[in-house]
Nucleic acid binder design. Structure first.
Lengths: 203, 203, 203, 203
DNA sequence: AATGAATGAGAATTCATTCAT
DNA sequence: AATGAATGAATTCTCATTCAT
């Protein structure tokens, strides 16, 4: 949307048509490759599957870290856009839980992504953190809306909700189990009270 | 219980005193190093921090994978022992939730461990998987006990509970947030009902 | 002849000019290095003498074994070509003995080569074995031709002749002695009869 | 026999009984191990098969090279003893050819031995060269005797005969082929003349 | 004397990144 | 702009040799 991080290169000059095509293909391939093999997947692999030379990858993304970052930014931005779109949906409860479910389902099988969701909280200094923050804000909106209509209890706050989102997107059980796992979390987000006794039990 | 996995070497012969010391130091250092850097941390790093040569590390653990495995087995075994001990505690509810909390707290900052908790479900064929299964079984016992006394609702099953354990142990927020995150999950495990509408919402 | 094994890479695509140069230099240097130090000579040594980095060697030959194999294939192919050329020479006797002499002379100082001539009989599964077989077949033709014109006695067969070729190419005496050694073998291949009594004497 | 190289250690002091036993066992195991794997077989392997610690091997033989040398000396000495014994046999022809056959047969499957037979000609400076010379001298005697009775033609000399011995002991064909190969060589050593034309053909 | 443990110096191989075409 | 080639710096693992018990 109105994100400033969407420029094609830092130089600002618009890319030639074929270059833009290449950049996009590389980015998409990288998402798959890092999704499967994590950070440690090799840049050559990305180049090969994208059908370009390694040097081309490095022309577009000066370091492997930059490539990884670009992948993450793209992903975070997409998610943020979805969240923003849902924030205008008629049923805020369905919007919130639906988004939560979809994100977790999508993250399955995307190692690097979820690793990143995780680490992006920590210092990276870069664009990925910003993009992650954008997503977090959008989730915050969804959450507030849902609380407004009583779909989510009022006493939970964004940090723990986001932590749950990150956490559950990391687990990679089969769909069946994943759904049952989410059901529990969603119950916890809805009902409230009661179990308070055990919250810190044993600590 | 009487853990059979605690022998010093598979060979059976007890190690010389100095060797055992070294082996233990290496194992502990490795736990930290892999905890911080994940699988991709280098064996050399482990050796350096343990104050021994790389070759010494390899003498004790013939491959890097074996070292990683040993670390995991040790950790899983420890956790299983704790779980087993708690399974005989007077208050099954406190036992279950207490164990859950402690595990998640301990996992903080231990990348490799949680990665492993995660992957151990998949094929590894090795000792780590066995140890992981042992832990899972022990958690199963805690869960059943807690359900028996009504501390955990009766309609949840081990797979999703274990998935939640894995998931939340992966997230690494500060203590504050972690506790609030767990409170939500624990609520979901206690109350039940109600939120069913949203379980698969958006899917 | 039209050797099919001479392509630059198995991929088929012709190498860039500079790459081909490097590949050839590496191959030649490797022939010398392995010739002197045998299989256990180091790849680093090859790289150093070829004036390239180790990684370059590995780019061209993905494993040390592959490099060794390439060296052998090249050598076997060359020898086979020579043998094939000689198989059309006017004097089959001179062709056979001449080839024999030349091969033995060339093998002097080439440990890896003769080791390989030796081992190629055994299982390697690879291209070297094929190339070795090609050479053996070519020698077979030379032998048959020479027997046809009576230059080599009729009752010897390829296996023992090839074994002799391998054996004598392994010994590395000075030229003088080598020639005298070959003279004995050649006599044995020509005359026949007579000494039969001693063939298995003492056995 | 009257060899001066038979002392147990260079120190001169006689070894304790158990030490001598160990030394012998190590030596025999080493012969097998190096026979199978060549020089590159590991010292640990020797130790393991001998049922002693590595350090014990190194106590008896200060370096791997020394161990290899000792193996060779032992082997050369044994062969020399056999040759010397045969030099007093009634039939010098049978003695010569018999010894030749036996040596070649024994060498089969003993990589290091034949490698050494080969290299011992070159500079080693050590005891192995001396032992090798002893063997060579003994073969010389066998040869002269055989020539004396006309079993071997008179115009061949020790260097080329020894070279043939070395060469054929390196080839490792099956028994069948080996025998036929030797038959050719023996013919060459007996008959003489005739094939002279080809001796240096092609050179 | 015997041994298991420790180790430094390689060796093969990989990979992010730079260079020449 | 695109590419294949080149490379230095890791990284895992091995082995002859030394050390401490």
């Amino acid at each position: 949307m109105s994100t400033p991080g969407n420029r094609e290169t830092s130089g600002g000059r618009p890319l030639r048509a074929d270059a833009r095509t290449n950049r996009e293909r590389i980015l998409n391939v990288a998402e798959q490759v890092f999704g499967k093999g994590g950070r440690s997947a090799s840049t050559e692999e990305v180049a090969r599957l994208a059908g370009v030379g390694v040097a081309t990858v490095f022309r577009h993304f000066p370091t492997k870290a930059a490539l990884l970052e670009a992948v993450l930014v793209q992903r975070f931005d997409r998610l943020r856009e979805q969240a923003e779109a849902l924030s205008r949906a008629p049923d805020p409860g369905a919007a919130f839980f639906g988004f939560f479910s979809r994100l977790v389902a999508d993250a399955a099988g995307k190692i690097a992504i979820s690793e990143a969701l995780l680490d992006a909280g920590s210092a990276d200094g870069g664009a990925a953190v910003q993009a992650s923050d954008g997503l977090r804000r959008a989730v915050g909106t969804l959450l507030r809306n849902a609380q407004h209509v009583g779909a989510v209890r009022g006493d939970v706050e964004l940090p723990e909700v986001y932590a749950l989102l990150v956490a559950t997107s990391r687990a990679r059980p089969e769909k069946e189990v994943r759904d049952r796992m989410l059901a529990i979390v969603f119950d916890g987000l809805t009902s409230g009270a009661g179990a308070g006794t055990f919250r810190t039990a044993g600590r």
